[in-house]
């Protein structure tokens, strides 16, 4: 019960007013990957746009139903990474970390997968409840780029769906994958980034210093990495998190 209330408080902090039985899905992706096309083809006209609370950054939310479950899709700002150098990246990261999404959908551009995987891997470091959508498959085919979705799924160890949102290809599969991840309790164990020895050494050293630190929903290894990035904005996020749940 308490957890339910916490979840609601946290979401409302981000301006997300979901009904208790509603499933919240965060939508992440690079700019120019057809993220809004995916958003539109999932939600149709049932959407509204505004700003993130207190920020001049666009926020779009939309709803759709699948298998008698109502989904609330939250469009995160388009970013190249979640390392929080800009306000957009910070919003995207904080929502995935603290906004309690039941699933995060990461949209990748099939025509430049490498750069897009960089973002996907960063999301997978935060949460295992992820569905990967490789969009623009039609465009990639036209350019002679073939994406092996099965291999990708094996490598990332989370559901991967190839789509061409413009023509509606793969959208039903995407809904099914989202439904699986958001409502089933089986947890994926996604691929983790392998760091070089130097970085691993630094993580180990800092993690031991973090042993007794309460980190909320975050794992220690990831928090250590962010502190090593030298970007203290995550600390403010953790602080807000504890403030919200203690009230």
């Amino acid at each position: 019960m308490n957890a339910q209330i916490n979840k609601q408080v946290l979401r409302e902090h981000f301006g997300i007013h979901a009904r208790p039985e509603q499933v919240v899905v965060a939508l992440a992706g690079n700019p120019n990957v057809g993220k809004s096309t995916v958003f539109n083809s999932l939600t149709g006209l049932r959407q509204h746009t505004g700003n993130w609370p207190g920020k001049t950054v666009d926020n779009a939310q939309g709803v759709f139903s699948y298998r008698q479950t109502s989904f609330l899709l939250v469009d995160l700002p388009g970013t190249y990474s979640l390392l929080a150098h800009t306000i957009e990246e910070q919003i995207a990261r904080d929502f995935i970390c603290f906004g309690h999404p039941d699933a995060t959908l990461v949209v990748l551009d099939a025509t430049c997968l490498e750069r897009n995987l960089n973002l996907a891997l960063q999301v997978l470091e935060i949460t295992p409840r992820v569905v990967i959508c490789v969009n623009l498959m039609d465009e990639a085919r036209k350019r002679g780029i073939i994406i092996d979705v099965k291999t990708l799924e094996k490598e990332l160890r989370v559901p991967v769906v190839g789509t061409a949102a413009r023509i509606g290809e793969g959208i039903e599969d995407l809904k099914e994958a989202l439904w699986q991840v958001a409502t089933q309790s089986t947890h994926a164990e996604p691929a983790q980034v392998r760091y070089s020895l130097e970085v691993e050494e630094a993580i180990r050293e800092l993690s031991s210093a973090l042993d007794a630190v309460p980190t909320g929903p975050l794992n220690r290894r990831w928090l250590a990495l962010r502190l090593l990035d030298g970007n203290p904005s995550i600390l403010a996020g953790i602080n807000t998190y504890f403030e919200l749940i203690s009230n």
């Binding site: 490498e114 995987l117 960089n118 891997l121 780029i145 073939i146 392998r194 070089s196």
Partner: peptide, 16 residues
């Protein structure tokens, strides 16, 4: 390192 991981995965999953 993030990109090194991304490169490796892309190498396996993408055919030009």
């Amino acid at each position: 390192d993030l990109y090194a991981n991304a490169e490796e995965i892309a190498r396996k999953a993408v055919v030009f």
